[in-house]
């Protein structure tokens, strides 16, 4: 697809959608959002790039191989469940919380965040590997 307008807008869309997807991911615990939705939004951002510039460009912008991203996501999700097994009480995937105050704002940080990030990566990696494969026209050997 060689539309000039699409090309011009793609970078803008891409940046906006990617930031939006991370925002969605991070706020997921208290507002609508979360790893699944954020991941799908992030994948959409790359889908726009794929449609506009082709799979190899999107792959370059992703930096990391999508299948590897999938694996990283799974590892994150599994890691987030490990602390209880290492003598912190509870069974696998019992999440731990750290509650503190920074500058008068109460902050809740938990291992759930790592789990959600894992979900995010798996979804992004999963969708993108399908997408890249299907849009891979073979024009440029990216070595993958």
């Amino acid at each position: 697809m060689n539309s000039v307008i699409l090309h011009a807008l793609t970078r803008l869309f891409f940046a906006a959608m990617l930031i939006f997807s991370i925002f969605i991911l991070l706020r997921g615990h208290n507002e609508p959002g979360g790893g699944f939705i954020g991941g799908l939004a992030g994948a959409s951002a790359y889908a726009v790039v794929t449609m506009a510039f082709g799979a190899h460009v999107a792959q370059r912008w992703l930096i990391i191989h999508p299948v590897v991203l999938c694996g990283v996501g799974l590892v994150c999700a599994i890691l987030s469940g490990l602390p209880p097994l290492m003598g912190m009480g509870g069974s696998f995937l019992t999440h731990l919380w750290w509650i503190g105050e920074i500058g008068g704002v109460e902050l809740h940080l938990g291992t759930t965040l790592l789990f959600d990030i894992g979900v995010y990566f798996v979804v992004v990696g999963g969708v993108l590997s399908m997408l890249f494969r299907l849009y891979d026209t073979g024009e440029e050997e990216a070595g993958w």
Binding site: F36, L40, V123, G126, V127, M130, R133, L134
Partner: peptide
């Protein structure tokens, strides 16, 4: 349903492929 949608998507995509 949320997870079912995502899984359904990846499996349907796999079937398509």
């Amino acid at each position: 349903v949320l997870t079912a949608i995502v899984i359904g998507f990846s499996l349907t995509a796999l079937a398509c492929v």
